[in-house]
Nucleic acid binder design. Structure first.
Lengths: 198, 198
DNA sequence: CTGTAACTACACAGACCTGTGTAGTTTGTG
DNA sequence: CACAAACTACACAGGTCTGTGTAGTTACAG
């Protein structure tokens, strides 16, 4: 216990700069846009020298990719937790809509970070674009797993449909923040599930 | 007739610069992103002095808004044409999906210009954001009109659902260009229409 | 011919951008 | 203590950005 604490302290101490940089970058990139935020601003607000940013991440592009990687991890972990807390397999699928719903009514909602990155970065081979693409695949796989557990026929196909609904709700909500889009998406999802009920 | 032609010529001659600027700006903004393209590049490629750009549009922000306004007009006119060419009211709704489908499989597809603008511009009061929001409302109204003509119950609600599907397909296709998303959206649309058939 | 609208060429301000180079300091470890 | 990793401060290169100021040119209408 004491040892664990010390180790944690050490690893936190080892690169405290990188950690602060990522936190600040995540906040600013999401809120203001990737291109809109300069490395000077990030390092300044993180209370870290710009040199450290470049020593840790190599450049802005990789910092952006890291920002998305971390966001991907956290969102998937959150989703995992939400679906695990539900018992009924079919309800798990609907719980995903609940998770998205809570997110996109928040005051600080600014659309899907991955979609936004794709909008800002035309280059398909940019590291951030690859992370963004993987993120969507990850969500789809998660949905497919749940659909399979709920014993739906063609779980892959259902997962694709549900993902499209979530994307649609997110994109629509990004235009003008409201809770309607998610309710619409959820009700379509219900129709789809009911139509495939055994 | 002759008079019309002369008037057209005159009005085209009156501001040839503005026209060229808008064409070039539309192309660059869409392909490379709004923030990524500077006014110097635009005016240079349009073969027009930067001063003219500022005299005509007042600034970059208004040029961006104009770019979206024109894109909105054209897309709505195109959609109008597509749906008018179909006879069956119910088929008109599906024709909208056909129109989106053709667009998002093109080589130069870079996602929805309005969604991209919203992603790049956090400020909700930016003129471009207002145009983008209006665009989506316009499409929804168009769909609602078609749904009404096809005598569906609750046409507004159906329109909202169909718009969400189109948004989802566009967003998904923007991540990794494929034709699947639209097929998925279209098949969900079919299910929705069938479930509401008289 | 004269006036006016549209436009050009070009310099410039002032800010911001990514990225590097360098010399020196802190901090924890063997 | 000695060493190395991590970090700081700071200047700088070279570029881009939006926007303005100014003097002069072109095209056309009355």
């Amino acid at each position: 216990m004491e040892q664990t604490e010390r180790e944690e302290k050490r690893s936190m101490r080892r690169r405290p700069g990188a950690e602060r940089l990522l936190e600040v970058a995540a906040d600013l990139f999401y809120r203001e846009g990737i291109r809109a935020v300069g490395v000077d601003t990030i390092s300044q607000r993180a209370g870290v020298s710009k040199r450290t940013l470049y020593n840790r991440f190599g450049g802005k592009d990789e910092l952006v990719a890291e920002y998305l990687r971390r966001r991907d991890e956290r969102w998937r972990a959150y989703l995992q937790g939400v679906t695990e807390s539900v018992v009924e397999p079919r309800e798990k699928l609907l719980a995903v809509f609940g998770a998205y719903g809570e997110w996109l009514v928040g005051e600080d909602f600014r659309g899907c970070a991955f979609a936004n990155a794709a909008a800002e970065i035309p280059d398909h081979n940019h590291p951030a674009r690859i992370v963004a693409q993987r993120h969507k695949e990850g969500i789809k796989e998660h949905l497919a797993g749940l659909a399979k557990d709920a014993e739906f026929d063609e779980p892959e196909s259902l997962a694709e449909r549900l993902l499209l609904l979530l994307e649609g709700a997110t994109a629509t909500a990004a235009m003008r923040r409201r809770r309607e889009p998610l309710d619409v998406a959820r009700s379509i999802a219900l129709e789809l599930l009911d139509a495939r009920r055994h």
